[in-house]
Write a protein that binds this DNA or RNA. Sequence first.
DNA 1: GCAAATTTGTTCGTATGTATT
DNA 2: CAATACATACGAACAAATTTG
Lengths: 268, 268
Amino acid sequence: MTQPMYRQVAEDLRRQIESGELPAGRQLPSQLNLQQRYSASRNTISDAIKWLTSVGLVETRPGQGTFVIAKVDPFVTILSADPGTGFGGGEGATYLSQVGEQHRSPSTGPVRVEIQDAPAEVAARLRVPNGTQVVVRHQERYIDGTPWSLQTSFYPMKFVTSGDADRLMMATEITEGTVLYLKKAVGLQQVGYRDWITARAPVQNEMSFFGLPHDGMVYVIFRTAFDQDGRPMRLTVTVFPIDRNQFIVNVGDVPEPQYGAGADEAGP
Amino acid sequence: MTQPMYRQVAEDLRRQIESGELPAGRQLPSQLNLQQRYSASRNTISDAIKWLTSVGLVETRPGQGTFVIAKVDPFVTILSADPGTGFGGGEGATYLSQVGEQHRSPSTGPVRVEIQDAPAEVAARLRVPNGTQVVVRHQERYIDGTPWSLQTSFYPMKFVTSGDADRLMMATEITEGTVLYLKKAVGLQQVGYRDWITARAPVQNEMSFFGLPHDGMVYVIFRTAFDQDGRPMRLTVTVFPIDRNQFIVNVGDVPEPQYGAGADEAGP
DNA sequence: GCAAATTTGTTCGTATGTATT
DNA sequence: CAATACATACGAACAAATTTG
């Protein structure tokens, strides 16, 4: 069960990284150097480094070298919320206050608004007929300047056409949050939501926005919000890079988390 | 911005897979065959296939060939629960009934019990001093015969030494669930829990148990359960392969999901 | 059970291209 | 522009796993 040479080299480098011999951010010796040190061809060294890249331990920059990855401090989003308010983690106003609690500085890109025929998956989750028109609101979100999430919300078009929720279609932020706005504008109250947590490989635009390698992964969270009649009133799809995000769900009576201090709040 | 050859080959194969020309389960032409078809060296073909493997589209079996991956029907775990009962998704009895609802057939491996000094991370989450002894209960879980999750629960040792919860230390299943058992045995009531959702690369034993490739990923969910005094009474760490698991969190008033039928229950 | 054929995995040498300093 | 460092590509050879005859 002798390992191939490239794996042996990779495991040796891995050991050095995990033991701290090669600290985060440190540049690895060049491939030419490693070639001599391990008495292997440069191709084999390159394979070893490819393997380390695929497990997320190092990052190579053409023309510069290979560097040990510095793990970013993960950002934690609370998905559950006080059912009374109907607000949830990662939404509008809540997003900003949560980020503030963790001593991070949030910012958002401009809102992009489109009118579309609902794709099959969106229509199914909103429980509207296939091809129904929906208002789509996109937004990019950053924390401490780092791209953090891509959010897309879908609202049935009838809120705009048959009601007074005109601001849904304007490409400006709704600072009080769309949950509150829809309640005031058309009397729709969000009484609950379901989050569906999945993960997959990123698509092209996600890779470039988040700066992910082709073998990175993203969480995709589908939040279906329900109104007082138990009907879906909104679908929000948020994409988070897996390497810098974690989630919390509180159920029942749970003591208050204390960010950065509480004993059970330490990241894994 | 012309792509390298191995990527062009990979993209062409990807197109064939995504268009259905190469359906799930179908064997790709052999590397020798593709080498001629694309007029490239076998090394380059091999690189293209490595890339497709890393994005999870194909799987190669040495000596046999390369096959288009058949996506498994994901299993969905509900993390939130009725706060009144204190039960949550994926726990003991609840796990079995949830799986039943999805027309899947669950099974579990034998329980393994150990007494350990709590590792730093466990001690922090249980809010006990470092090195405190804990009872550790491991279990492997399957659905339809496929390895589905690895669960490890940590209980403070004092439940056994100062109370009457002897069955915690026996390597047999506690069929009514440990939540109920602890309530009856030592009067500890679980009033809530916090789930901390993270993801990472699998370690060796996870890779072999789940049959994951080296660049696969797993969810790791840390569930800290709290008693009536707001103190942690249990930490359960569950590892799920990302490719066959999804999670749901319900908050507030949410209509009942109807597995396999409801419109908003369609997987992404 | 064994041998041959098929298929993927690993490794080397070598050459050339591209990005960065 | 030159030097350095990684990326891609080819050809060749042998190894390992599996199926087939």
